[in-house]
Design a protein around this nucleic acid. Structure first.
Lengths: 147, 147
DNA sequence: TCAATTTATATCGTTCACGATGCAAAAATA
DNA sequence: TATTTTTGCATCGTGAACGATATAAATTGA
């Protein structure tokens, strides 16, 4: 029967949606003391890997629209984590760079990934199946990226 | 080196977050014609399985807070999909029930799960590894549910 | 029975997320 | 070179998510 398919239990997307929300929630104890949110943490990860990037590059790496990232960066600028300067070759661009505070936060945050994986392992028992999920998720993301 | 851990590529949560957003986006072509959003679709799934539930039960099944679900239901009531009546035994409760429109939408929506799985299979080639992901996600959700 | 506590829902404020739209600068093309 | 198109970013409006708080009703317990 077709209605069977409409059961919540059958849905992969619901699990992704829920797991994503709850995992983000698990970052709270680590990000709250730093005064940042999970999306802001992602922006910092991008900038810690390479400082001074235009808005578009950051958005692209996070698979977000610029109209999501722009206000995010404005809030981060207000919080003193980044500054946004006009591009020199291309004046349409806004180059986002880390402030002293943004650079220093890297040191405070460097333990977070370990904390999170430990937590996940402790909570769920095993690590291997989560590692195995990564290439599958990458395939899904890659496939859905272009409509 | 500890900083290696801070690379975006290493992060499972980022993939969950991204996959969830993009998958929700894949529902747009099917939900837009019905005039509903993905979270509203989830509420309908819950109510199609069992009509007339208090807010709390719906929230619990979706792993959401009631302060997320209440405004969601208010919008759905305004859209004529559900109605919210005072509980009879417990007058604190609001019993949410489907309207005629909400009931009828089940028929229009019954093909959506098949469409989505076909899309995912077509996009990513294989089905099996996504099915395999489900119990792992359930384990993660179950573990993170209680703090 | 009456006060204290818990429960069910609602309201408020902030931050995302994103479609639609606007605008200026750059690039392409006539 | 002048015009058209594209690009990069910003703004606006709407709908989640959720922490904090409020409120009334139910429950507990003294």
């Amino acid at each position: 029967m077709a209605y069977e398919q409409l059961k919540l239990d059958n849905q992969l997307c619901f699990r992704l949606y829920t797991a994503a929300r709850l995992t983000m929630g698990a970052y709270h104890p680590y990000l709250d003391p730093l005064g940042i949110t999970y999306p802001q943490y992602l922006v910092l990860l991008v900038l810690w890997e390479q400082d001074k990037q235009p808005v578009n590059d950051i958005a692209h790496k996070l698979f977000l629209e610029t109209n999501t990232v722009t206000p995010l960066l404005q809030r981060m600028e207000k919080a003193g984590l980044v500054k946004r300067t006009k591009g020199k070759e291309d004046t349409r661009q806004r180059i986002v760079s880390l402030t002293k505070k943004g650079i220093e936060m890297r040191e405070q945050a460097k333990h977070i990934p370990d904390c999170l994986s430990n937590e996940i392992i402790q909570i769920t028992g095993e690590e291997e199946e989560f590692v195995r999920m990564i290439p599958t998720l990458d395939k899904l993301i890659e496939g859905l990226k272009q409509q």
